[in-house]
């Protein structure tokens, strides 16, 4: 077994362990919440005790907590997320479109901003003290410190209500009745709705990447190896590329971690734009104590973060030759 394989195996094992811990925590926390999913039905007085017991038995909630836990783990392993209590629909049928909606908004936004702001940040760091650097820092700090829903509302006011360029809410116009993802996403109407939330998401993520890239390059700028590169006769831009390559690792880590967190959606953004994403769905499900839905959603989110972490480790080992893949060696 090569060193790298062993490293990968170790990481995988850790990831599996983390996943088990995460799903167990979800399970316990949900049961600790006061009340139950049927509280609302009971208080409305429409159901008698017998009917409630029947429903509870149907969902397996009358069994001992241990049995519930074992069933839960078993179902997760086979990716059976069960039946949503409130929506009376299989959980996956509820989650899947919401997840896709979130991803289609946030993944392109994240990739765009990671590339653009990193390049801009590197350029700004290289030209330290320039007007571009100062302006970029001020504007991204402003964007970072303003809550995303404020920015979003501001954009809605300007572009949707005042200029009336784009619609303010939703993913498709109310009259549209698309069938399937292809029809939903490949249309001018969708693009029209997409522009505003996409722009806000890009701006929201931009600050971190820009500052990371800028700081990395500023730190590397005076280093000896760049001096040697310069002495070799490399042009400004070639030197900047080397400085950028050397400061890429923190950006890479941050990108993969952010990518994992995208599966949680951007709750505030989704709420403001009425974007039918997974974040909004989760908030609703928690409010209504829809156990199966919350469990499944949180499981997917945790899994995404853990997988992203794993990816970050592997990419790190690939991009940084000085990272020892033997894991904790003393060399």
């Amino acid at each position: 077994m090569s060193k790298f394989q062993r490293f990968l195996l170790k990481r995988l094992a850790i990831s599996v362990l983390l996943t088990v811990v995460a799903v167990s925590v979800i399970f316990v926390v949900l049961r600790l919440l006061p009340g139950s999913p049927f509280e609302a039905l009971v208080t409305s007085g429409n159901l008698n005790q017998e009917q409630i017991d029947e429903i509870r038995a149907m969902y397996g909630l009358d069994q001992s907590i241990w049995k519930q836990y074992v069933n839960y783990l078993g179902s997760l392993l086979t990716f059976q997320f069960g039946y949503s209590i409130l929506r009376s629909q299989p959980v996956w049928d509820v989650l899947e479109p919401r997840l896709i909606n979130s991803l289609i908004l946030l993944v392109p936004a994240l990739v765009t901003t990671a590339v653009l702001s990193s390049v801009l940040g590197m350029y700004a760091g290289w030209n330290r003290g320039s007007r571009l650097e100062k302006a970029s820092i001020v504007s991204t700090t402003l964007l970072r410190s303003t809550p995303v829903f404020i920015t979003a509302i501001f954009f809605i006011i300007v572009f949707a209500y005042n200029l009336e360029i784009v619609p303010a809410l939703g993913m498709r116009s109310i009259r549209a009745t698309p069938d399937g993802y292809l029809e939903t996403f490949v249309s001018l109407d969708f693009l029209h709705h997409y522009l505003l939330p996409f722009t806000v998401a890009v701006l929201y993520y931009s600050g971190d990447f820009l500052l990371l890239a800028r700081n990395g390059v500023v730190e590397k700028r005076g280093s000896e190896f760049l001096k040697l590169h310069r002495a070799k006769g490399l042009s400004e831009m070639e030197q900047l590329a080397r400085a950028g390559r050397n400061s890429m690792l923190p950006i890479l880590t941050y990108f993969t971690l952010r990518l994992g967190m995208i599966f949680q959606g951007l709750i505030l953004l989704e709420v403001v734009f009425s974007w039918p994403g997974i974040g909004r769905e989760l908030v609703l499900a928690i409010q209504q104590q829809d156990y199966p839905l919350v469990q499944a959603a949180v499981f997917i989110m945790a899994l995404a973060v853990i997988i992203a972490n794993l990816a970050a480790d592997v990419l790190y080992a690939y991009f940084d030759p000085t990272v020892s893949t033997s894991g904790g060696g003393s060399a």
């Binding site: 280093s223 000896e224 190896f225 001096k227 040697l228 590169h229 310069r230 002495a231 070799k232 006769g233 490399l234 042009s235 080397r242 390559r245 050397n246 991009f319 940084d320 030759p321 000085t322």
Partner: peptide, 28 residues
């Protein structure tokens, strides 16, 4: 600047001070 770059290394090469950190760490 461009004319100078052409002379660097072609005619005048440089052995830097600190061997420990004058090589690019992420390039073979």
């Amino acid at each position: 600047a461009a004319e100078r770059r052409d002379i660097l290394w072609e005619d005048i090469a440089y052995i830097p001070q600190s061997a420990m950190d004058s090589l690019d760490p992420v390039m073979s």
